[in-house]
Amino acid sequence: MTEQELVRAAAGGDTEAFARLVRTYENKIYSLAFRMCGSADDAGDIAQEAFLAAWRGLPSFRGDSGFATWLYRLTSNAAIDYLRRQKKQRGDMSLDDEELGLDAVDTGPGPQDAAERTEVRSVVAAGLQELSEGHRQVLVLREIQGLSYEEIADVLEVDLGTVKSRISRARSALRKILLQKGNLSGYLPSNLK
């Protein structure tokens, strides 16, 4: 069965077809959730919520975008909602995207540590969690999920130019964070000092 056929079958209520889709995408969706929220437990909840939202929405899914794109969108939105709830629970009522701090996000040890045993990878992963929500989102989609500019534009529902410039700014911001923490030995350009 092709993915399209699986999607159609699942939309008609075929749980086995949906199970195959879940298995196909579980790592990607879980990764996206994990990289967005930084907590293994919460990533599980977010990823599950995204798949359930997909199951509920499938009967009306029109396929204008691909299933994967749609699933990434559901996950990305669920993760952002999670971050906002976290933010709110911490008592800060500001929901401004760019203002959204992530300092209280649990970045403690989790089952993923094994995958991040190299030092560079773990400092970059930690730096990722300090990015703004929007920057982290676009970098995760591009670098970890491997989405093209066009796919990211679909997921985020923004235009291509915005995707390109946001990715570039996100990279710049991430480097700045890592430099400030002393995690990169690079030369700090004057405009970042």
């Binding site: 749980t15 949906f18 199970a19 879940v22 298995r23 579980e26 790592n27 990607k28 969706i29 879980y30 990764s31 994990f34 990289r35 293994a40 599980g44 990823a47 599950q48 798949f51 359930l52 199951w55 089952p111 993923q112 995958a115 991040e116 190299t118 560079v120 990878r121 970059v124 992963a125 990722l128 970098l139 670098e143 970890i144 999920q145 990279r171 991430l174 480097r175 890592l178 990169l184």
Partner: peptide, 27 residues
């Protein structure tokens, strides 16, 4: 940026054991 890119590129993590089963149980 190349160093960051290399670090990021391999950051996909695996879903926990039994994740798909839990999702499907709910479904």
């Amino acid at each position: 940026q190349i160093a960051i890119h290399d670090a990021l590129a391999d950051m996909e993590v695996k879903a926990p054991e039994g994740f798909a089963d839990r999702v499907m149980a709910q479904v």
